[in-house]
């Protein structure tokens, strides 16, 4: 009887012992730091096991064009969105853009907040659906980046527009934009299209329409749809696209180095002429105007402007910050920003 019991338990204990031993062996054999050099980035690493030195890749940036006929020249567009909230309307509008999707690369930066996490989940789902869906709808690439710094204030509508909080908020926004831009801008990017996550309606031809003007920096007019007593109307939304005024320059001259001028606040009357109010209904949508400050809700920039160094200053640059500071920096580098007062894109209405 005793012999039988021993025989019965023997194979199991043996097996257990063998498994443990194998596990131990593997644990001991697998080095904590890989002895074989790892190839390339974490994302592009091949797991096939065979190791080849990465090749020498050649890029001819002299041949990169940014022209008024971007589709004909197969010019790559990098579409960038700082994403704090995910609106289905935004995504639907984005997917509807009829610039060839294989020439569009998407880039998102998502803050590490609860809101950001929620937005990320929705974004990932939407992206997965499109990138595994119809070939024609697939974008050439999607990069999703998690922000490495905190957004200072909650992004509720009321907080967002409080004057005191503006500087910190827009400085963080600038850093987010720069982080996104300088990690996704590639060697073949011709244009950078900035599209905010709360732009819910644009013409599907947005990119080629703006590119047609062949301007270094060009911005459409950002409006908002609303209903008043059941009547649907539109109103100006983005006031960051403007022409400089002497009053604002005087104001800046009296200001400290780190103070900033903001548009759309009663406490700060700049008397700048705003593109938002320059819209003439019924006129050509391709009417141009030169600008000194630009808004970032929808903004098409030639990649060379960013490559030259024009970024979104997270500090007071000529007493301007973020997209307005960007316009100033682009001008300092010799690139004149333009605006299209009659070409409308629509902001989400909260």
């Amino acid at each position: 009887m005793a012999a039988r019991a021993l025989r019965r338990s023997n194979p199991i204990t043996l097996l257990l012992g063998l498994l443990l031993f194998l596990g131990f062996l593997i644990f001991m054999i697998t080095p904590s730091s890989p002895s074989v050099p790892r190839v390339g980035s974490k994302s592009r690493k091949s797991y096939s096991g065979s190791y080849d030195a990465p090749p020498v890749v050649h890029y001819y940036l002299n041949n990169l064009t940014t022209s008024s006929e971007p589709i004909k020249n197969r010019e790559k567009v990098l579409l960038l969105t700082p994403l704090a909230r995910f609106y289905d309307e935004y995504w639907a509008n984005l997917v509807k853009l009829n610039y060839p999707h294989d020439l569009i690369e998407l880039g998102f930066i998502v803050p590490k907040t609860r809101e950001g996490n929620a937005a990320l989940v929705k974004l990932e789902e939407a992206v997965r659906k499109v990138q595994t869906g119809k070939k024609k709808d697939r974008f050439s690439g999607v990069t999703i980046i998690r922000q490495d710094f905190d957004t200072p204030v909650a992004q509720s509508e009321k907080d967002r527009h409080a004057l005191a909080a503006q500087k910190a908020r827009r400085a963080a926004m600038s850093r987010a934009r720069n982080s996104l831009l300088y990690t996704t801008l590639g060697t073949d990017t011709a244009w950078v299209m900035w599209l905010d996550a709360d732009i819910v309606e644009t013409p599907p031809t947005l990119i080629q329409d703006l590119a047609k003007h062949d301007r270094a920096v060009i911005v459409p007019n950002c409006f908002q749809r609303y209903a008043e007593n059941g009547v649907k109307k539109v109103r100006p939304y983005d006031f960051n696209s403007w022409h400089e005024s002497n009053d604002a320059l005087d104001m800046a001259a009296k200001m400290g180095r780190d103070e900033i001028i903001l548009e759309g606040y009663k406490e700060m009357a700049t008397w700048r002429s705003l593109m938002a109010y320059e819209r003439q209904e019924g006129q050509s949508i391709h009417t141009e105007t030169t600008l000194d400050g630009v808004g970032g809700t929808a903004l098409l920039v030639k990649a060379e402007v960013h490559r030259d160094g024009a970024m979104f200053p997270p500090f007071a640059f000529y007493n301007l910050i973020e997209t307005e500071g960007f316009a100033k920096m682009a001008k300092r580098l010799g690139h004149q920003p333009y605006g299209l007062p009659n070409y409308l894109v629509y902001h989400y209405n909260e």
């Binding site: 994302s43 992206v127 997965r128 990138q131 595994t132 697939r138 974008f139 050439s140 690439g141 999607v142 990069t143 999703i144 980046i145 998690r146 922000q147 490495d148 982080s179 990690t183």
Partner: peptide, 9 residues
């Protein structure tokens, strides 16, 4: 999905 890349800065 090779076209989707995630990074945490």
């Amino acid at each position: 999905i090779p076209t989707i890349r995630h990074y945490d800065l």
